[in-house]
Simulated scan of single mutants.
Amino acid sequence: MANDVCATGSSRLTIDLDAIRANYRLLAARVAPAACGAVVKADAYGLGAAWVAPVLRDAGCGIFFVAQLCEAIALRAALGTAGDIFILNGLDPGCEALCADRGFVPVLNSASQVARWRALARERGSALPAALQIDSGMSRLGLDAAAVEALTGDAGFAREVPLRLLMTHLACADEPGNPANAAQLARFAAARALFPGVPASIANSGGSFLPDGFHCDVARAGIALYGAPPSALAEGLRPVAALSARVIQIREIGAGTGVGYGLDYVASERRRLATIGIGYADGWPRHLSGRGAAWHRGQRLPIVGRVSMDSLTVDISSLPDDALAEGDSVELLGPSQSLDDVAGDAGTISYEILTQLGRRHRRLYVDGAQQ
């Protein structure tokens, strides 16, 4: 199955839908009896929510998380009527009525978001469900302890805003031994006690591999769904994305010849080079210049010179002369090079590599379970 965004692109991104299904089932079993929700924000981490979300729905997922209202609207079109959709960032001022009309569940992160949502409930004369985020120590989103306590003493809040979920976010779930995890869990437990009977959620992908006490009622699986281990404890996840790109030119250069913008790389001896049709406009980081690599049949081909907007150059001197020709493809993500490998070379994280992959790749969605 392929889409038509760029059917003739020089690079091909293959998304394994069966791997996503398998990863979801592994995570769901890991956190049971808690429910396992799916984070499909940023277009399912760049892999295409319109393709990914229905697979997760059919695998049994009934809870989905996005970051913005526009993502929720697009996701509902992909999912149909099935599944609850939570908006993690809450709502921009003026978007409350649209959110309520569409039946989405906003995550209220601040006193002002709470006030606007309550105002709409009073205006309409009907309760409007929401989720509430507590800041348990990350200092990013969520109400502080004083604001939470004020809400618990406000009888009108419970009438106007029946809570569907109480949540917080772990800052260090990718470091299982970090004491911040236990500290956040303790603070969240104190907040939960103020809202008896409300389902709770603290575990992200990394939290799903922490002890059972972190799983609460709902886990929010994100990067693990897409095949990147969120911590050293995560085992059994299947890679989801594979990326290859075509050779557009092969040349030989002599000693003293520079390569690419700035001529940062200068050959010390005769070298054979291949220019590959992928660059930072396709989400392949410029920080891989002189550090990253492509692969061909298990052979590492180092990037020489700078990654350009639409191309990069690799040294193929280690290959037989007839091993690569113009039009052939090299591996960028696959059996020889994982997301974490690329992220390490680029000095970043797998999340950034995945979400930055551009729209020029020819996308091929494969599903072994449907074949």
Rank of each mutant, 00 (worst) to 15 (best):
G9N: 05
L185F: 04
L301S: 02
R21E: 01
G103W: 14
K41I: 00
H215A: 13
M167H: 06
R57N: 13
V39W: 00
V66G: 09
A59E: 10
R192K: 15
L243K: 03
F157T: 07
V342N: 02
I353N: 06
N23R: 07
R25C: 14
Y351K: 15
C6P: 00
G90P: 00
D321H: 11
Y265R: 05
L354F: 07
A173E: 03
R359N: 09
G213W: 10
L151Y: 10
A193R: 14
P285N: 12
G177L: 06
G227M: 06
G292Q: 03
T348E: 06
A146F: 07
Y226C: 04
L165C: 15
I349T: 13
G125C: 10
L243V: 10
L143F: 04
Q337H: 14
G206H: 09
A369H: 14
L354S: 07
A32T: 10
G260Q: 02
R272L: 01
F64Q: 04
D43M: 05
L263G: 15
F64D: 01
P129H: 15
R360N: 15
S231E: 09
S244F: 08
G283W: 02
R21Q: 01
Q184E: 10
Q113R: 11
C36T: 06
C70T: 11
L143V: 07
D367W: 02
D315R: 06
R220K: 05
H169T: 09
V314R: 03
G156Y: 12
A127H: 07
A146W: 15
A343F: 04
R272N: 03
H296G: 09
A100S: 06
A147K: 09
D328S: 08
A203W: 02
C216I: 00
M1Y: 08
R359C: 11
A234V: 10
G283R: 00
C99I: 09
R57S: 14
C6I: 03
S336Q: 13
G125A: 13
D58C: 10
P211I: 13
I87R: 00
S268P: 08
L210C: 02
D18F: 12
A274G: 02
G260V: 03
R220H: 01
P302W: 01
A115R: 11
D315N: 05
A150V: 09
S205K: 15
L47G: 08
A274L: 03
V366H: 03
G277Y: 12
H287W: 06
V259Y: 05
R159G: 12
A224P: 04
F209S: 04
L324S: 02
V114C: 05
P106H: 03
V218M: 11
D340E: 14
A281W: 12
L141M: 10
L108T: 01
I87L: 08
V31G: 00
Q370A: 13
I248W: 01
S10T: 04
D154C: 15
I85P: 00
F65Q: 07
A100W: 00
G90Y: 00
V105M: 09
D212K: 10
Y24M: 06
A35W: 12
S268G: 13
L79R: 01
F157D: 05
G254C: 10
A119E: 11
P54W: 03
E175S: 08
S112D: 05
R187W: 09
N178V: 02
T14V: 09
G206M: 04
L263W: 07
A325C: 10
M309Y: 13
L332W: 08
P302K: 10
Q68R: 15
L288M: 09
R272S: 06
